[in-house]
Computed example of a mutant assay.
Amino acid sequence: MRVLHVISEMGSGGAETLVAGMVLASGAVGWESGVASGGGHRADALRARGVPTFTVPVARRTATGVLRAAAATRAAVRRFEPDVVLAHNVSATLVARLAVAPGRALPVVTVCHGLADADYRGAARILRHTARTVVAVADATADRLRDAGFEDPVVIPNAVFPQPPTIPRVVVRSALGVAPHVPVALCVARMEPQKRHDVLLDAWAKLPGDAVLLLAGDGSLRTGLTHRCAELGLTDRVRFLGTRADVPDLLAAADVTVLTSDWEGMPIAVLESMAAGRPVVATDVSGVRAVLADGGLVVPPRDPAATADALGALLFDPPARTTAAAAGLAAIRLRHDPHTFMRSYDELLRASIGGSRR
């Protein structure tokens, strides 16, 4: 089965991480995979491993942008000749649907990785006309889609494709200028409004001691966040690392991870942290509570004081970290196994090719 993944970009985001994992695991279920995207370091890495990749301009929210992306995707479809298109999120679905030649029975299956609350109704309207099947990455995402008018999403919880660290913990910390005994929290997230780094910085300012916060990611808010960090007197306790391709090594260096988003689907950063044995502090949004189970602590969104309390409870209490880490690993093995995940997608895509909606 030839599967073409269509996604806006292939940088460091959660959906991009999932696509890369699916592509590299696809041989085990009998797929030949290709990726059509706006590029990024994950696309470069896949290309280096022989995966067919196709450059598609990012479809900005304009008619011209969508049509340009659709034309490039149409060329990718002609070259790769897929049996099914797996489109990641709504804009990629619209582009993929426009790219498929009229009358051609090429199914487009959508993966909905999560949306802001205000976007669900518009997304459901588009998906009713563009996708044969819609996969929701969490029960909460499926519920939002149903409430918005898309009646029958299929739920396949995200999996994590574990990657061991390549460098010992002490070496990573040394390179980051962090002493072996210092408590370290890691946030892996794009610096965009959804992720609410401002809340995280306000929380970090409330924590005592010499703990260090690592921020892995980049985006439109970085300059403002750097200034906010200085205003709070946190320059010596926060490291802005930019976009990183070595997240497994950063996880090895950390004691806890943190995510203060306003909304999520089923965040890959949380799953990766749990799989690496690192407990998580995250906001109680959408599917996060179900993912964490006992593998960390959930806090209300936009609440720096609660976030600081939760971080302190794990950063400065090694036995609590150990207990949460063990629970997180058990949850990953039980509910987010990559083999089960790939088999579920394999069955779904083959059914789509056969003409079945589900």
Rank of each mutant, 00 (worst) to 15 (best):
Y120I: 00
G242N: 10
G149W: 00
S174E: 15
L200C: 03
W204M: 06
F161Q: 07
A179H: 12
L207H: 04
V134Q: 05
D249P: 04
V199C: 09
E151Q: 07
C187W: 04
F161L: 07
D246Q: 08
A179N: 04
R169C: 13
V238C: 03
C229N: 14
F240A: 10
V135W: 14
G122H: 01
K195L: 13
L214D: 13
T141Y: 01
A140H: 07
A230C: 02
D143S: 09
V199M: 05
F161S: 04
V160W: 00
T243Q: 14
V135Y: 11
S220Y: 01
E151D: 14
V247P: 13
L176S: 04
D139Y: 00
T141V: 14
P168F: 00
E192F: 06
A179I: 01
A118S: 15
D210C: 00
D139T: 12
G242P: 13
N158E: 02
G122I: 00
V238K: 13
R239F: 11
R239N: 10
A205M: 00
A189W: 07
V199K: 01
A245P: 03
L232I: 14
V188I: 15
D198H: 09
S220T: 14
W204V: 13
L234W: 11
V155M: 09
R146N: 08
D249A: 06
V199G: 05
L213E: 06
G209D: 04
V212A: 04
L207E: 11
A131F: 07
G224L: 01
G242L: 12
G114L: 01
G209P: 05
I167W: 10
P193H: 14
L214W: 07
V188H: 06
R169G: 06
A148M: 12
A136S: 13
D246C: 04
A211H: 05
P162W: 10
G177P: 02
C112L: 15
P248A: 04
Q194G: 08
P208V: 08
V170G: 03
T133V: 11
G233F: 07
V171G: 03
R228E: 13
A118M: 12
A179Q: 10
I156F: 14
E192C: 11
V171E: 15
P208D: 15
S174M: 04
L241G: 09
H113K: 08
Q163D: 03
F240M: 14
V212Y: 11
V178I: 10
V172Y: 08
H113M: 07
A140N: 09
A140P: 03
P153M: 09
D198C: 01
D218W: 01
P165G: 08
D249E: 02
L241E: 13
R125N: 03
A140V: 08
D218T: 07
G114I: 02
V184C: 08
V188L: 10
H129T: 14
V172T: 09
R222K: 15
T243E: 15
R244A: 06
P164F: 00
H181M: 02
D152M: 01
